[in-house]
Computed example of a mutant assay.
Amino acid sequence: MSRICQITSKKRMIGNNRSHAMNATKRQFLANIQYHRFWIPSQKRFIKLRVSVHGMRCIDKKGIESFLNSINSKNKGN
């Protein structure tokens, strides 16, 4: 399973390790993805999401229901 946030769509970035001699070798910067259960009061149930820590902070600020509405509207558009 890929390491992509279900809220913010953050994913890995690719860059270089730099040695003291400035030699470059490829590396990956991984997003801080966590599994987290969120309580939805209107449905009286939990949902489990793979969310970055930045996504958790956004959910704390705006609320889980606003993000669920935006995800549902995106799915209806497809």
Rank of each mutant, 00 (worst) to 15 (best):
K76S: 14
K76W: 04
I47N: 05
C58D: 08
A24S: 09
S9G: 11
I7D: 04
N78I: 07
M1S: 13
R18E: 07
Q6E: 15
C58Q: 13
R50I: 01
P41V: 06
N17P: 04
I71G: 00
M22N: 15
M56K: 12
G55V: 02
R57W: 00
F67I: 03
N75T: 09
S70C: 04
R18F: 07
N69T: 06
S19R: 01
K62E: 14
V53Q: 07
G63E: 03
S9C: 07
P41A: 13
I33W: 07
A24V: 04
K74D: 12
N23A: 08
E65C: 07
R12S: 15
W39F: 15
N16G: 00
G77L: 11
G55F: 01
R50K: 15
A21W: 01
F67P: 09
H20L: 14
K11Y: 07
K74N: 10
Q6P: 04
W39M: 05
I4M: 08
L30H: 13
N17C: 06
I71L: 14
I7W: 05
T8L: 15
K74M: 09
G77P: 00
I64G: 02
K26E: 06
N75D: 06
S52I: 03
H20G: 05
I47T: 09
N32M: 13
G55W: 01
S73R: 11
I40T: 10
N75M: 10
N75R: 13
H36R: 15
I7R: 03
Q28D: 12
Q43K: 13
R18I: 10
H36T: 13
N78K: 12
D60Y: 03
S66H: 10
K62S: 09
H20K: 11
N23Q: 13
N78V: 08
N72W: 06
I64C: 02
L68R: 05
T25P: 04
S66D: 10
S66L: 12
L30P: 04
D60R: 07
H54M: 01
K76Y: 11
I14K: 09
E65G: 03
I59D: 00
R57M: 03
I7A: 01
K44H: 11
R27K: 15
N17M: 09
F29S: 13
Q43A: 14
